[in-house]
Computed example of a mutant assay.
Amino acid sequence: MLRPVHFEIHVSDVERARAFYATVFGWRFQQWEDNPYWLVFTGTGPGIDGGMRLRSGPEPTDDTPITGFATTMEVADMDS
Rank of each mutant, 00 (worst) to 15 (best):
A17D: 05
P36S: 14
P4E: 07
R55G: 03
W27P: 00
P58W: 04
E33G: 02
D49S: 13
D77W: 03
G50S: 11
W38V: 02
T44C: 06
D49I: 04
G50H: 01
L39W: 06
L39Q: 08
G50R: 01
D63H: 08
G45Y: 12
A22D: 15
G50F: 00
Q31D: 10
P36N: 13
D13Y: 05
D49V: 05
D49M: 07
T23H: 11
D63R: 08
I48M: 10
D13Q: 13
Y21E: 03
A76P: 04
D63F: 09
A70Q: 09
F29I: 04
P65S: 06
R16F: 07
R3Y: 05
R16E: 09
Q31L: 06
D13M: 05
R16S: 10
P60L: 11
F41H: 13
V75K: 05
T42S: 14
W27H: 02
G50Q: 00
R16I: 03
A70P: 01
D34K: 10
Y37D: 01
R55D: 00
E15M: 03
E8I: 01
T71Q: 13
T61K: 11
F25T: 04
I48A: 08
G43V: 12
D13L: 02
M73N: 07
G47F: 10
H6Q: 13
